[in-house]
Design a protein around this nucleic acid. Sequence first.
DNA 1: CCCAGATACTTAACATGTGTAGTATTGTTC
DNA 2: GAACAATACTACACATGTTAAGTATCTGGG
Lengths: 146, 146
Amino acid sequence: MRSFDESLPMALLNAREAAMSYFRPILADHDLTEQQWRILRALSAYDAPIEVGDLATQTSLLAPSVTRILSNLEGRNLIERQTVEHDQRRSAISLSATGHELVHRVAPQSEAAYNTIETKFGKNKLTKLIAELHELTKQLSTNQDL
Amino acid sequence: MRSFDESLPMALLNAREAAMSYFRPILADHDLTEQQWRILRALSAYDAPIEVGDLATQTSLLAPSVTRILSNLEGRNLIERQTVEHDQRRSAISLSATGHELVHRVAPQSEAAYNTIETKFGKNKLTKLIAELHELTKQLSTNQDL
DNA sequence: CCCAGATACTTAACATGTGTAGTATTGTTC
DNA sequence: GAACAATACTACACATGTTAAGTATCTGGG
């Protein structure tokens, strides 16, 4: 069978772990998990209420995970929810003032870590690698589960 | 702040999800999670008893996760454990006969999925991408948390 | 208007990720 | 050789991944 360490899934997993090791300590300092941060990032990027389903898509999280994370973030007053008019099933999420403050505190440190990664691997190479990853994702996502 | 979707961690995450979507259904057919399969794969690759710590390193799992997964696999009689001589703290894990059979049933399907991925993205490009990922992992792993 | 189906989200159950603490064993130092 | 640190693993707590089921709401055909 194919060598274990050389497989694509393991290569992707190991690369991601290596990258995340630069971010996790920063997030831990602010009592944030990676997934909580992804949601705050997404909310901050739009700066307009986002529905739960769209949030799940944007962050590559599953709906049940988003539900739990949102109840956590809501308990910490980092987000606010409001029901959508004309459709009582949906609820739209937005950052609270406290949430905005938190994002603004974390963002510079996150940027610094990213810059470290760019320096270590090479900015140009990193850009190309990410482009390749996007292409791989796209190729593999085309009608395979139909 | 840096665009959310274009970040390295998200690109790696999405690529891995896209790739794993080819394998997960196969594993599910055999009542295996991705992590359980990784451990069986590693045990199969060596065909000699492996200590728990080494198993964690090889599979990029954390020791507590390995402990839990092993107790699950042991309950299904897929693995066997024996204590190491001269060091009663360690225990060495190996595949049982049933475990070997299972690996031999799953492996061909896994190979087929891998071939599909190679075809979709291009065998050559995939090889290069994996090499780049290995280099990234190596660069980012060098003395950052000291 | 009603009701079957679709949709949006939540809940539940089990497995794993992650960090911390605990236990047992081994190694080391004085 | 007894106290101490280091090692290997396990236990625990909380958060998330994953799948399935549940609830509320909306939509469209009769």
